[in-house]
Design a protein around this nucleic acid. Structure first.
Lengths: 150, 150
DNA sequence: CAAGAATGCTATGAATAATAGCAATAAACC
DNA sequence: GGTTTATTGCTATTATTCATAGCATTCTTG
């Protein structure tokens, strides 16, 4: 009946917001990555896909800025989405392209949105509706100040 | 006077807790990494160092479990801390060692704690004291449920 | 004593992100 | 108009973090 339980260690960073944020975020990311693996997408790829879907015609530099990603890092992701036939590029500038989802990309986007919604519902059900809204508001407030500081 | 401002993109994941969590956590990690670079430590190394300092005698497997790190991933970190003279290993088992900070490690730990406290104070000053406590409580509650689910 | 579990570790690969630099193009300036 | 500056997409490279598989040693347990 009584299992052997390891005595818990002291957590010196317990009161640090950054530490708790990191721990929860890491767990959430792992959970989401697992959920999205069925669609053969990483969390980042899924996010970029949805971002393009919601902003047809945007260039990859703009998408990257909105997601706080460097141009150098988003390039291979765009190439991958295009290679998979999920997005298409239309010349907009002599140097840039307007991105948009293909029908295949929109279909997958729909599925990704469902997966993410399920993931959220499952993971965040430990919090009440009220707490979820509180947490969301606090995070958004944090992001505004953090983004402004950069 | 009026700068050219790029029209903001639609953020389809705006209401997703996991998304906002990731964005804030990423910004916080980058900020902390920058702050800790002066001590020649990554956030992970700093965290492990403080964890060992707070739990002298613990084995690296135990430290790893408490931080949700695989044995395979913590091994090189421990080797690095030992190589730098920050921690020492004392045989505890035929197969494991009890870890503890050296005086040099404790001195650095003190400095790391200060750096982290400063980092937190600077980054999270956008929230009131009350909001910071709310956020901390919500995150801890999330962590309990997430850990239980794993 | 034998079987299974735990520990430390290596090797390897995936995912994410940072920096530097390049060629082409656009925009701004004189 | 022509020069300078900025932007864009991209490659190459590196660092960090984390996951999996496997191995030898050593404990623990039946």
């Amino acid at each position: 009946m009584s299992e052997i339980r390891e005595e818990a260690l002291v957590e010196p960073l317990e009161k640090f917001l950054g530490y708790q944020l990191r721990r929860v975020s890491a767990a959430s990311m792992a959970h989401l990555a697992n959920a999205l693996s069925a669609q053969n997408l990483s969390p980042t790829l899924g996010t970029v896909l949805l971002m393009i879907e919601a902003n047809p015609g945007a260039t990859q530099a703009r998408i990257g800025r909105a997601l706080a990603m460097q141009r150098a890092n988003i390039a291979p992701l765009i190439a991958r989405l295009e290679h998979d036939g999920l997005i298409a590029r239309k010349v907009s500038d002599g140097r840039s392209f307007g991105l948009a989802c293909t029908p295949k990309g929109e279909a997958l986007g729909q599925s990704v949105r469902r997966t993410m919604a399920d993931h959220e519902a499952e993971l965040y059900s430990a919090l009440t509706q009220n707490e979820q809204e509180q947490l969301l508001d606090l995070l958004i407030k944090m992001r505004r100040s953090v983004t402004a500081a950069s």
